[in-house]
């Protein structure tokens, strides 16, 4: 038990917190299986800590924001998609998306 706990990269509580953030739920049985596979993925991702030969001191970080915000277009108003088209394959009522009551 102690051995398996020491090897665990993620506790059940952490896993459940992640599931809540991800808006997913798992049964007890699924949780066991998923945690095992999830730990394998984390171990795989720990590969970023491998040593790489060469000088990396001048390297700068590149993230998605830099790639995505290169060339912004002018903020011009263009026609929107018609409501009836957007609501054509969802739960729509009287021109709105219909959901269960939020404010109680």
């Amino acid at each position: 038990m102690a051995e398996s706990q020491r090897e665990q990269k993620i506790s059940k509580e952490q896993f459940r917190a992640l599931a809540r953030l991800s808006r997913l739920s798992f049964s007890e049985e699924e949780e066991e299986q998923f945690i095992a596979g999830f730990e394998e993925m984390i171990t795989f991702c720990d590969g970023i800590n491998s040593e790489i030969e060469g000088d990396a001191s001048s390297i700068r970080e590149v993230d998605a924001r830099e790639i995505a915000l290169g060339d912004l277009r002018a903020d011009e108003v263009v026609p929107s998609l018609p409501n009836e088209k957007i609501l054509s394959n969802v739960h729509g009522e009287r021109g709105y998306f219909a959901v269960k009551r939020v404010v109680k």
Binding site: S22, L24, I42, C45
Partner: peptide, 27 residues
């Protein structure tokens, strides 16, 4: 309620590999 609807929709709608990657991304 609406939170339950979203969670159940995603839980039943996504397959295992997609859930795994969403969870890893959140982590």
């Amino acid at each position: 309620d609406i939170d339950d609807m979203i969670t159940k929709t995603r839980t039943y709608g996504f397959g295992t590999e997609v859930k795994r990657r969403i969870m890893l991304g959140t982590y």
